[in-house]
Design a protein around this nucleic acid. Structure first.
Lengths: 165, 165
DNA sequence: TCAAACTTTCAGAAATAATTGAAAATTAAA
DNA sequence: TTTAATTTTCAATTATTTCTGAAAGTTTGA
């Protein structure tokens, strides 16, 4: 397979993965373009490679930077901003996990907290409280799991557990 | 807070969470309705509670069953199908993780496998191979992590690590 | 200060996804 | 069988998300 073709497949595949994770497809594709590029690229490079508009490119690049998976750089004697991707994929996964946790688990926790004040003693109320408590403990567990991933990342025992064919 | 109100908040919040996970909002809401209901419900109950059409209800119930998080049941002397939700939330999370793994990680792995056949020796090709390899190992790592979650679930050491305030 | 180079914004257009509702298919009791 | 109850399908509609492109905003160097 030729390089260009392989890169395109990677870009498409990565975009697809992003889409199914609820991340805008173009955003994932821009990240993929930066991942496969040895040097930092400017907005025009990205617009050209993906055939997208300036506005679209700009918005999604901002978003990637906000997620902490793409960085800016500057070239001396050039006014343009250049962008490059975090290439440590595990670090990437951790950052995405952290960002999602912030955006999704926290709002859920807030709601679940409020719901504990439900009044009454009927069967339905008891059932409901059980569900809320269960959701709450799941959220906490998911939360500490994500923490764990970050912390245990370098731990030799963890590496041993997760290594394998 | 009154029960009905609390249930509605839970249903909305759960739908929201589902949406940000790339799961159809209605699908998540149906699951929430079943979660807070002490008895199994039929299609009409769900249509009424969420004010949605029969087609919509049917499609999303099917999908929930396919994910393995909702089950059918039958009442004697009644032809209707009744549905109830898996209420063990941790089990739920595991099932969702497994399903997503199947739907998303596997396609990525297939593509990454193909991409190893890229030809050439240039700097760009080397860079590209590095990215592919890195993505591949991240995918494998995520994969074994999900495996681990399932296996360690009952493990006391793991519980100790993840327990917290 | 001005003007060129570049970035950001955002209203409207286009693309995508979800939903409806009624018809078709299926099921099971009589 | 037949028929009534129920589930499934799907073309058309509606809602949501994403994208465009041009105008407005910002920055930098002369």
């Amino acid at each position: 397979m030729k390089l260009e073709e392989a890169q395109d497949k990677f870009i498409q595949g990565w975009g697809q993965l992003g889409a199914s994770w609820g991340i805008n497809r173009t955003m994932a594709q821009i990240q993929a373009v930066l991942l496969v590029s040895p040097e930092a690229l400017c907005t025009d490079d990205i617009m050209e490679r993906l055939q997208i508009s300036r506005g679209n490119a700009n918005m999604n690049i901002r978003e990637l930077i906000a997620w902490g998976v793409v960085y800016k750089s500057f070239k001396p004697g050039d006014r343009k901003e250049y962008y490059y991707a975090e290439k440590d994929m595990w670090d990437l996964a951790k950052k995405v996990a952290r960002e999602r946790k912030k955006r999704e688990l926290e709002p859920l926790n807030r709601i679940l907290g409020e719901l504990k004040t439900v009044e009454g003693n009927s069967n339905e109320v008891k059932e409901f409280k059980k569900v809320v408590k269960s959701a709450d403990s799941m959220a906490k567990r998911a939360d500490s799991m994500l923490e764990l991933v970050g912390k245990l990342d370098e731990n030799i025992f963890f590496k041993w557990m997760t290594k394998g064919k």
